[in-house]
Nucleic acid binder design. Sequence first.
DNA 1: TAGTTTTTCCAAAACGTTTCGGATTTTGCG
DNA 2: CGCAAAATCCGAAACGTTTTGGAAAAACTA
Lengths: 338, 338
Amino acid sequence: MTTIKDIAKAAGVSVTTVSRALNGYSDVSEKTRKKIMDIAKQLNYSPNTLARSLVMNKSKTIGLLVSGMTRSAVKDNFTFEVMTGVNDYIAKTDYDVILFNTNSTKQREKTYSQLCRERRVDGVILQGIKTDDPYLTEVVESDIPCVLIDIPIQSDRVGYVTTDNVHGAKKAVQHLLELGHRHIAMMNGHDYAFVSKQRLQGFYEAMEEANVPIQKEWIVNGDFSEEMAEARAYELFMKHQHITAIFCASDLMALGVMKALKQLGLRVPEDVSVVGYDDILLASYVSPALTTVAQNKFQMGYEAASMLIDMLEGNEAKVVTLRTQLVVRESTAEVKKG
Amino acid sequence: MTTIKDIAKAAGVSVTTVSRALNGYSDVSEKTRKKIMDIAKQLNYSPNTLARSLVMNKSKTIGLLVSGMTRSAVKDNFTFEVMTGVNDYIAKTDYDVILFNTNSTKQREKTYSQLCRERRVDGVILQGIKTDDPYLTEVVESDIPCVLIDIPIQSDRVGYVTTDNVHGAKKAVQHLLELGHRHIAMMNGHDYAFVSKQRLQGFYEAMEEANVPIQKEWIVNGDFSEEMAEARAYELFMKHQHITAIFCASDLMALGVMKALKQLGLRVPEDVSVVGYDDILLASYVSPALTTVAQNKFQMGYEAASMLIDMLEGNEAKVVTLRTQLVVRESTAEVKKG
DNA sequence: TAGTTTTTCCAAAACGTTTCGGATTTTGCG
DNA sequence: CGCAAAATCCGAAACGTTTTGGAAAAACTA
């Protein structure tokens, strides 16, 4: 592999000059620059980023730390779309992204900052991490620039991008209320997700503003899992036959809920209205098509990457909140009379 | 950031000894090893992989070069599942994966080997690349270990993993033949994909073995795109009303075909049987559910990663061919009598 | 005890870059 | 022409590791 030294020798100049020529410094004459460039091309030279990173103390690499890359999470395009957004922005810069994964054995062995420091990443994007994850406290303490997705933590080194979860959930529930529903349940995620808390708040706000009493036992956790949601929904609708509508904190759970309803012989939307959250790919393909709160996952990734690069260039950490949109499809209908 | 030198100073030994202690060499006494380990932990040391990679001439990094990370390709879980498989295997090793993307502006600027050499990746996995991609010739010429997905090129430095495309396609067509279909069309991908050629061959073999004449004008290319397939199918079924079944080289195209059929007032499977290829997530969710040839995309990625790491450890490049499986759902039925 | 082996340690070179400080050459100007 | 200024170049140090080839110390052996 040809190095800067080879070029220097071939061109009869010093390595300093080669380096400065290649990097476009002004203190090298056009003639020698041309010669160096030619030789570099001819020798098929490519710079060694390792060496460069070592001396410059920046790797031009960002870490992408996601949790949703498991075999079982394939139904959930969320992670992939976010990744695509990140990748899309990064592709336009001179950074590369290196993929870390939580929930691997590696995580147990290495701490967050170890991971990052070993690879000398310049910054990190974190997605899908739970609020009780040991990594999270490290993020705040660490001095590595970082942007979080859907986790509202901020400092001068960490920013985040999220969506207006409270408002999104509120719109969903208001939609059900407008359809005449008064017996509304909620399938939430789990206690270790900020979005769960926020969506629950949206649920409360909508109900309270409409003066509809809230039944606490109608609010259950499905752990953001299709299977868990199905089981919980089965119990729920078995016990409480008054419920005419349910708001789910994720589309995946909504699918589980619909399965449970089918098993119980309840029709969607005739007997029970279902609304989801996320607008995953499947939402528009299942039957009946799922009414849901759409969030632009691609853009979340894109904005996160954009913010991180901004931060690496000296700007300060920000907060970006994207709008959600209620997409009404076929899984919600007016409440039955009587 | 604490370095090996800091530890050496604190422990009153040389950097050599620290290095050898940390890396488990035998020529350092247990007493000093213990002392060094303690100090390392206390100083919160993590090794600088950049420096290590530089001197060891290996980065413990593999490149993952995929093409399907675009905003529009989100429907196609193929890429994501392959990536998940790769990630899953790599997570068990001490390698990390760095994400490159083709079809970016970067590709036009940098050649394949430039990309790889700059980041000094130890090996590469390539997915979704066309046969006329300039990168491909480079792969063969380059001396970087590499495993290709669905591209049958092999040398001592490059292996590949694929599925039995000929046989898979054959099974799909035989399924149609067994249902009594004789007027069978095919929606192929494009001429720059090996799988297209192989699936076409499977189509031919099945038809010829059954002594069913092949209508060349019933074989069209949909470019692996839903929209393109829809347009082509519209023309096709408009012109040739004899066709009772169509085999599609991808599920995404099958979706497009089904849209076209709907537009034309043709029912699936009553009027026309449709079979796809891939078994993407949507296949089982669309209505009617798609009969298709399933390939284990996760495993493809997993095997690819496994082979690459094997190669990096001195073993030679291999060829892995995974089995496919015909999944009969609702989009195929017996041909209408009369 | 003296010699030999084994154990434990270390100095220095190397990896491929960037950059600091200064040296050399060329140019401009009166 | 002579001198100052500008343009062009370079040596050497630095980044944080690993590794080579021995040296020093400790342990064993006869």
